[in-house]
């Protein structure tokens, strides 16, 4: 018994002594660094993805844009816009997790299948689930963030309430209060006063989402996807997280109002028409719409 305790303590003390050593600083990763990170895994449902297994698929399908070192500097880099993601930075748009945190494996898995609308990233729905899980592990092996941090805790999305005219009106108030129109425009046409000067985290020009031209939102087009987009923000872009300033119930109201701006027919759109809902007034003082 005593021996066992001693053993436990010695292991614990040893671990503490090792952790207390200074951490090396990060630099741009080289081929050699990446070689040592081949053991990275992903877990999606009951599937386990292995980075090593995705090597061939990555070389065949992904390397031309994302580059051999995963830094987004592939052969096609100069010719495409939006630019391919730099996986070494570990910063991703489509997450279920709060701004400033890593996405979950499931988030990356979903992005692969969904593709990113209005970019060169296609829908990789032709891959098997195992292939996708392997590629997720491969994407993760490019960034040391996955060694040093855990993915964020996914935000909680309450069940979707029923759409009512009151909720659509309340959603319009949220749209006015948090000033979505500053970039997206009062009609959602991506022509707000700040739309023209938007840049991404690397200083490259970027467009706000235009609700009216029928394109799918970048990170999915279900109601839950839209809810998630403004409550987590799209990291790496000017789109911030509104999680601290929109309550879960209000968030659903906003989703319903955003539907009225979209070109697709929806019951929200019909209700707004019946209500005779006018666009918000950008010149009205705060709280007086």
């Amino acid at each position: 018994m005593q021996r066992n305790n001693l053993r436990k303590w010695s292991l614990l003390l040893g671990a503490v002594a090792i952790v207390a050593l200074p951490m090396p600083s990060w630099a741009q990763l080289t081929k050699y660094d990446l070689e040592s990170r081949m053991g990275v895994e992903s877990h999606v449902g009951n599937i386990t993805g292995h980075a090593k297994a995705a090597k061939a698929d990555y070389r065949r399908y992904c390397v031309v844009c994302h580059g051999e070192l995963g830094d987004g500097n592939g052969e096609s880099f100069p010719w495409i816009d939006p630019k391919p993601r730099d996986f070494q930075l570990g910063v991703f748009k489509c997450r279920s997790t709060p701004t400033g945190t890593l996405p979950t494996d499931q988030d990356l898995f979903d992005t692969l299948a969904r593709g990113l609308d209005r970019s060169n990233m296609p829908q990789w729905s032709t891959f098997t689930k195992q292939q996708r899980a392997d590629l997720v592990a491969w994407v993760k092996h490019f960034s040391p963030r996955w060694t040093n941090e855990k993915p964020g805790t996914p935000i909680t999305i309450p069940p979707e309430p029923e759409v009512t005219p009151e909720r659509i009106k309340a959603g319009r108030d949220v749209f006015a209060r948090v000033q979505c129109w500053k970039c997206h425009g009062v009609l959602g046409q991506a022509n707000g006063p700040s739309a023209a000067t938007l840049t991404d985290d690397l200083g490259r020009p970027i467009a706000a989402y235009n609700f009216t031209e029928g394109a799918r939102p970048k990170c999915g087009d279900t109601d839950r996807d839209i809810y998630r987009i403004f409550m987590t923000g799209l990291d790496g872009t000017p789109m911030p997280s509104f999680a601290d300033n929109i309550k879960p119930d209000e968030a659903w109201d906003l989703v319903f109002y955003l539907r009225t701006l979209m070109s697709q027919n929806s019951k929200e759109k019909a209700m707004a028409k019946q209500l005779g809902l006018k666009p918000v007034d950008p010149n009205a003082p705060a709280g007086q719409q």
Binding site: V91, T99, G100, T101, R145, E149, R177, V178, Q179, D201, G233, D235, G236, T237, P238, M239, P240, S241, F242, A243, D244, N245, A286, G287
Partner: peptide, 9 residues
């Protein structure tokens, strides 16, 4: 790690 949060009035 970069982050991006809105602050309405």
């Amino acid at each position: 790690i970069p982050w991006n949060q809105s602050q309405p009035p």
